[in-house]
Design a protein around this nucleic acid. Structure first.
Lengths: 353, 353
DNA sequence: CTGTTAGCGCGTTCAA
DNA sequence: TTGAACGCGCTAACAG
């Protein structure tokens, strides 16, 4: 393969036509005589023409607006990483005149999500990236987007057959399966397991957790017989209540020495352990929130499953950009790697270079 | 943060000078009066100027040649991935007029490496990426590069204090430590371990393996008392000899049920096990060669440590590009993530998006 | 020392 | 249906 770079002018010269005609052929803009078309086509078939991206970027006049409907965040949490990925993409594609607008909502708050969807559908966008936190509001929004032919991608959660350009996220079932395999690798007869569950209902987040749990249980059924499994429901925010619940639980079940949390809030358990100067033999959870990472480094959490939130945000914007700006087809599902992070490799982990 | 994009013309207008002067200030090209400089500086301090990368790319007239001194490869092996990463970077930076030349050598062959270094030093390059397989030849080459002020980066192996612009690779000690932790997670009293060693000598590859082994042993000392450890030396290529050695070993040591290989050639052991329809309780090795991945999917290898060869190649070229083309400072060490791959997450693993 | 100018390759007029 | 011409933002050469 040669590195010789052909320009439109080169092609025009080789074909014996003008640059404008070549451009028309390349972009299928019509108004080209059969004869000219053939001549240009012939040259294009023979050489390996790749347009100069810089010239394209420089000459681009069109402006695009992408709307991102994602949860609001605080420093160091999951959606902060997603945001950073989106911002990274924004900078990278800034020269293509892509403007990114955010419609943020309170995570887990249906009204706030609905509000965000409504605003987004009123606004005119060329593409939409969204974390479909609630099903009904999402479908409502999609209806409008579809009539306007505005493409959209889902990140983190999926709603199948909703017509998304692409879904970007993890295979939840398998990540649960892996979590079990890692967590229970040093299991010995007689030890017990506790699943720390959540009390949210009916949200895609809940569905995701359910799938992870399914995968987790699937591993246990396949590999571990008669294991005693406890369940403890934790509150999202009520630390005092959790303190009470966990205190009682651990007192009554000293053999429950493996713990699993199927969302980011494994720090709730980690913090409890830390406050009581206690450790489980194994505690696994999801996502590299600062709090989680810190607790893992201190030994209260033994493993975290990472799902590349930053990459999700980045890929989301990039998929929209490929489709809208470059009219390229994109794949319909992009599964993120299932990263296994432990105390020892967490320091080398990064999402971007 | 506003998205308003300032151009050099904007700055010139705001500062009351011409675009040329602004350019001189931006690039510290001198020949600017104090007064003009101050005016431009003031404007620059107030706004958030980011040059348009496309315009830079388009206007760039200079051509660069990078030489990559890396091992030759076959489809699906480690250095193939490195190559793909380099090629990815080549395509991405092609518009900056960077030409990539390869000086490939036979992996592990000092003469071939020496030959490649010699050719590279005779050729005139603007930057060099190399996998310093042999110390002396490398130092010889570096001497010449340094007199010519040609920057170079190391990938995969490092030679410390050799003046490399950047070293890109893994923290070998820690990756060994992690390998032990993963491998021995379900260790039970009485089980035995076998280390499959290599017989290469004095190469940076050997040093890397040594470091991994050190980390591995460090974990064992910290966490597992009186473990019986065997050592088996495998030949790189002589399959028949290995067959013999392994056959005898496993016959005599039925309790040696954990195995570790500190390089890519864990497939040597995996293949043996497969041929004898046998499995170890745990077998760990390095790198996602096709052969290794296949054996892991089939259950003969339990875990592989990945070190992102593709990303290494990509980052290597990118570092050179940042430094040579954009005159940017680059970090001196870029440790790759230590990826933990098992049967279940291997299918979702990828290096690039 | 400083302003002006001619491209870089492509998209997009506009006149022929 | 076609070719010529302009401009995107920046760099570098040149003329004052």
């Amino acid at each position: 393969m040669t590195d010789k770079k052909y320009t439109i002018k080169d092609i025009a010269r080789l074909a014996g036509v003008s640059a404008g005609t070549v451009d028309r052929v390349l972009h299928k803009r019509g108004d080209v005589s059969i004869k000219s078309f053939e001549k240009v086509k012939k040259v294009l078939d023979e050489i390996d023409y790749e347009p100069n991206v810089f010239a394209i970027g420089l000459a681009a006049k069109k402006h695009y607006t992408f709307i991102c409907i994602v949860p609001d965040f605080i420093e160091g949490d999951y959606w902060h990483s997603v945001y950073l990925g989106i911002e990274r993409a924004r900078k990278e594609f800034r020269s293509f005149n892509i403007e990114i607008k955010y419609q943020m909502f309170q995570h887990g708050n249906p009204d706030s999500f609905w509000e965000a969807c409504k605003k987004a559908s009123e606004d005119s966008a060329d593409a939409v990236l969204l974390a479909p936190n609630f099903r009904e509001s999402t479908l409502e929004l999609l209806k409008i987007l579809k009539t306007k032919h505005v493409p959209f991608v889902f990140i983190d959660f999926n709603i199948e057959d909703a017509g998304a350009l692409e879904y970007i996220g993890q295979d939840s079932f398998l990540s649960g399966f892996i979590a079990a395999k890692i967590l229970m690798s040093d299991y010995k007869q007689g030890e017990e397991l506790v699943l720390f569950l959540s009390d949210t209902k009916d949200s895609p987040a809940e569905i995701q957790m359910k799938r992870r749990l399914d995968g987790f249980m699937h591993y246990l059924h396949q590999n571990i017989g008669d294991l005693k499994i406890h369940e403890v429901v934790l509150d999202k925010v009520d630390v005092d209540r959790n303190e009470l619940v966990l205190g009682r639980f651990f007192q009554q079940n000293p053999d429950a020495t493996y713990g699993a949390v199927f969302n980011s809030r494994v720090y709730l358990v980690g913090d409890f352990l830390k406050n009581h100067a206690s450790k489980m033999k194994g505690l696994i959870g999801y996502d590299l929130l600062e709090k989680n990472v810190e607790l893992m480094k201190q030994g209260y959490i033994s493993c975290l499953i990472g799902q590349r939130p930053g990459l999700q945000g980045y890929c989301g914007v990039r998929a929209l950009c490929s489709n809208v700006v470059f009219k390229k087809q994109v794949q319909d599902t992009r599964y993120m790697p299932i990263d296994i992070l432990i105390k020892e490799n967490i320091d080398f982990y990064f999402e971007f270079v």
